[in-house]
Every structure is written in C-alpha cells, then in structure tokens.
Design a protein around this nucleic acid. Structure first.
Lengths: 224, 224
DNA sequence: ATGGCTAATTGATGTGGATCAAGGCGCCGA
DNA sequence: TCGGCGCCTTGATCCACATCAATTAGCCAT
C-alpha cells in the first residue's frame, strides 16, 4: 500500500525545484504516500515526528487545543503545500495537532534522511531557510492581525485572499472549508462570524448564499 | 569608530559555537560594532537590511505599528541574543521596527557575506535552521497565548519567566522594562496592566513596589 | 525650587465579542 | 418518509478589556 512516490509528484515544489535527478531519486526512495479520510489524525502535538509532508490532494488543519478542549486552527494546508518541515530541527516533536478536514493524499518525507541530504547540499539548506523565513514572516503578520484588527477586518482579509471568479455582479468565491472552521482560523466564535457575515451583507459589501460569497464591493471591503 | 569585533565577543553564541577559528575570523572581518542610545532606531519596518545583530549590552525592542500609530511590541531582545537573522532570506526587508530601549552595544553581521559562508558550510546552515525553528515555535506559542489566555494569565507567565532571586518572603524580580512596555508586549493597555497588578496584589499572590515585584505565591500564579 | 515632562494609578463608562439558549435547515441513513 | 444530527443562525445577556478623564508621583533641565 505504501509505495514510493514518483519524482514528478514533488519535484515542482519550491523546496525541490533546483535539485538534480539523482538527489530527487534518493528523496523519493525515502518518501511514502499517506492517505487520510476526513477527520483522521495525522499527528498529535508533542508526538515525536520523523516526517514532514507535502499535500497532494485534500486539506489538513493544523491546530492547538486549550486545556478546556477549545480548538484553535493555526493554519489550513492545501494542495502542493509543504508543512512540518521545522520538525526536523525542533527536538523532533510536532508543535501542533494535524488532522484531515477532507480525505487527503500526502507524501511523507523522511526527516532524518533529509537532514543528511541538507548536510551535503548547501543549496537545499538555503531553500529550506528561505521557506522557514517566509513562514516566520507569515506568523508575525498573523500575530499583528490577531491583536490589532477587528473580527470583521480579519474576515474581509480572508475573503479577499480567496481565489474568485468574476461575474457581472462581483467576484464570487466558494468557501473551501466550513464556516465554523473559518471562525476558528480567524479566532472568533461561529455565532460572531455569522453576525459579521449578515452585517457585511446588510451593508451591501457582500452577498451570502450558503458557502457561496459574492464580493459586491471589494474596494470597500479592503477599506474596513 | 567602527572597528571589527573580537572573535571572543560572539563565538559563544549557539549559532557560532561549532565553527573553526578561521571561519570565525572571516565573520569578524565582516562584522562591526553598533552603539545606540536609549530611543535610537536601529532599523525600520520595510527597510532594506544587510545586517543581522547580536546584542552585547542593552535592550532592543522589536515592534509593529498599526496605521493609527499604536505600537505593538513583538519581542524584547536582550544580551547575547541574536535577531533579524531571517532578513537574509526574506527579500532583504525587515519585517518589524527595531529601536533601543536603553543604551546598547550590538555587533552587526554582514548578511550577504554570511550567505556565502552558508553556501560552503552545511553545519552553519543546520545551526541557523535550528535557530529559526526555535523562533517559529516561540511564535506559535505566542499566538496561542495571545488568543487563548486572559491578560492576567499572560502577566503571570511573564513574571514567572523573569530571573528572580529568592528571599524569605518569596522570589523577587526587578522588571527589566517599563510597565507600559510590558503592557504592549502582553497586548493589553497600561491601565489594564495596572489593574491586574493591583488585583494580584490584593489576592496576595504578589507584592508590588514600583518595578520590584515579589512573587508571594508562585504556585498559585502558575495555576491562574 | 519651579515648571514641564512622562509613567503610573484610579474611576466612570462604553463595547466587541463570548456565552447561553432556542430554533431552523440541509443531509444522510434506515 | 421520517428521524436525527451537524451546521448555521438569531436573540438576550454578560464580561474582559478599551476608552476617556482626572490625579499623583518621579525626573530631569532650566
């Protein structure tokens, strides 16, 4: 069931793009496919981890739990995205929980082996450094957003960041995840998210039809 | 005025610890001392940066500004700590502002030169990867704390993390920075911080004498 | 000393979002 | 077809913290 992935399935990821065929082959030999159904757990926080992952299809949520069981989604990882690379250098323990939001196929890369590759390949190192730096910047921006912006504003940003297709009335987007998951990601309660949606709709900025959102006034949305 | 620092002044930092004498000498040649008075700006957000820094004495605050001028301190960097390493891989732009809280002496390392060293020294690469991973984990923890914990709890954590010396009545700590700076770091208003201090004091958990805080009940403080 | 800073405290009031509670609605399985 | 069960919504109330405002206390610089 676990066969080694084709090189072509991961060579286009930014981290691997510059590598030569031989190296890619070695990486592939130390990688395996991983399949998850919706709701399946990939790893738990604190668990010793020997892999990092590339999402080929599906969605993975990375989250933390407060001691009263409240879940806070840190990030939703989608197709062609790499995650948990940092586990290789952090005492091997995952800093978050990871479960599948929908059925998903991942490639699991062997972390210890990858470290030996890093030791011999400075370019690979630099690529990984760049990737981590980008993620750090994103985290700093997230802290900024969480502490200095209102819920409505965070939702506006989120909506504007979604892929959309244009129609006569405005940009239409389909929410990729359930509303309660969006609420967790934006760090607000589902009830509050619902109220913000209706307020933005009342103000004519958006139109809501279940998970189909039309941005009627994207310019005003940006200004919130 | 800018003379190159002695090797001994930075060789003990975790990032440099494993390096041989020759490499250290090269690094030193591309490094300079930087002196700042209290309030001096080291760099601004968005500025193109060609250096990363090691604090030898003093304190540097890293912060963001909201568009209405509100300042949010992300981190206070103290002696023997390295910061802004990530700027080497992030399009060269600093993601935060940095100013001195008190007069400070720093070593400024040349980032482009350091990248050439990384290319030739996998061990150095791995050290930097480890450092960035640790910082990322800290950021994740910070998000967790900011979004899932009350102000009182964040203050308790902060106090417990400070260096203290024990006395008969409890652990005594001297706040290293002004209370309003602590408030910004914990993302609460100075007024609210003041009220939390008096509440904790009323409850007998701590005693406050200006910037001298005695932890009377550290165990209870941990439980908040 | 004196005036003018800024930090810190304290009180009164306002508010965004959480919490508690009660339906409505789509979807799926028997 | 009918429950049943998440998900979403809507309303009422609550609370932590922000905001606004006034006062006091240290701390230079003149």
């Amino acid at each position: 069931m676990k066969k080694t992935p084709e090189i072509s399935s991961f060579r286009l990821s930014p981290l691997f793009r510059e590598l030569d065929r031989d190296l890619l082959a070695q990486i592939a030999q130390h990688a395996t496919w991983r399949e998850l159904d919706a709701g399946d757990q990939l790893f738990a926080k604190g668990e010793v981890g020997k892999h990092f992952f590339l999402v080929k299809t599906g969605l993975i949520k990375l989250f933390l739990l407060s001691e009263d069981g409240q879940e806070h989604i840190m990030e939703i990882v989608g197709r062609e995205q790499l995650f948990a690379e940092a586990v290789m250098f952090m005492g091997d323990r995952y800093p978050v929980y990871a479960t599948a939001l929908e059925s998903s196929r991942l490639i699991a890369f062997d972390a210890p082996f990858f470290v030996t590759l890093l030791r011999a390949n400075p370019d690979l190192c630099l690529g990984l450094l760049a990737s981590l730096s980008r993620q750090m910047h994103a985290l700093v921006t997230e802290i900024d957003g969480l502490t200095m912006q209102s819920g409505a504003r965070r939702l506006a940003r989120y909506l504007l960041a979604q892929p959309a297709h244009k129609t006569a009335t405005g940009r239409v987007i389909a929410l990729p995840i359930a509303k309660h998951a969006i609420a967790s990601l934006l760090d607000i309660r589902p009830e509050t998210l619902s109220r913000i949606f209706t307020r933005l709709a009342d103000d004519g900025l958006i139109a809501v039809d279940a998970d189909r959102i039309t941005l009627l006034q994207p310019a005003l949305l940006k200004q919130i």
